[in-house]
Amino acid sequence: MIPAAFDYVRAESAEEAISLIGQHGDESKFLAGGHSLLPLMKLRLAQPTVLIDIGRLTDLSYIREDGDVIAIGAMTRHMDVENSPVLAEHAPLLAHAASHVGDPQVRHRGTIGGSIAHSDSASDLPATTLALGATYVAQGPNGTREIAAGDFYKGFLTTDLAADEMLTEIRVPKMQGAGWSFQKFNRRAQDWAIVGVAAWRRNGDSGIGLVNMSSVPVLASGVSSALSGGASIEDAAALATEGCDPTADLNASIEYREHLARILTKRALEASSS
């Protein structure tokens, strides 16, 4: 449980962090809440030589209304997402999903930006923000750009972020009046999902994000089109595993994971419809 040796630098601003990562190059990493990175380092599965601590960038910790969207700073802790009155009003699905992340210790340290940048498909927030049609704001040496969640996840723990780009903001459309549900299936309350489903429905529209059903978070668009085409929940949910490529582990066979995805999608849609 002792990581390999590394250097540590603390950034005082996003700009400084970006220039530091430019200087130190490939073997350096941002350190946000450390709740994904440090466990990997302790197991020596990750051995960055320089950590650039962005943990003190409190100006990146906020949740505010910005026209039709809610803007969330990348350094916002899961606990603040969970308890945000703004999100409770405009995107309760995200606040609720954040309440399912790990345990209270994890939620007090882990950040929404770290979770999305790390892009573990078993994590709750990548799939949830994907379902919500979020955009992510990345800042690099040459300024900022917005990336649609649908274009962000490129492969196992791989995103569209360039090595010298930092995720600074998550923008979630306001969704008042939508029905929603977050179904997380795990064996212990503190665990990652074996399968999870984040879903919302409003009028004819819907969004369904699947946790841990592929190497990347999955948007079950087939289910949404079936629903808008008038399919029953039961029939639509049967399409949940289209485009999924789940793996087997101690907790689930591929067949069982696919079964769970369909059942949980059905339950999520039923709950979102009432």
Partner: peptide, 23 residues
Amino acid sequence: AYDSDGNLQSSSLAEYLVPAASD
């Protein structure tokens, strides 16, 4: 749980599921 090569697959508290108070 061991795989057929004799590797312990549940060698951390993430895979070896000790239930907690909430469970």
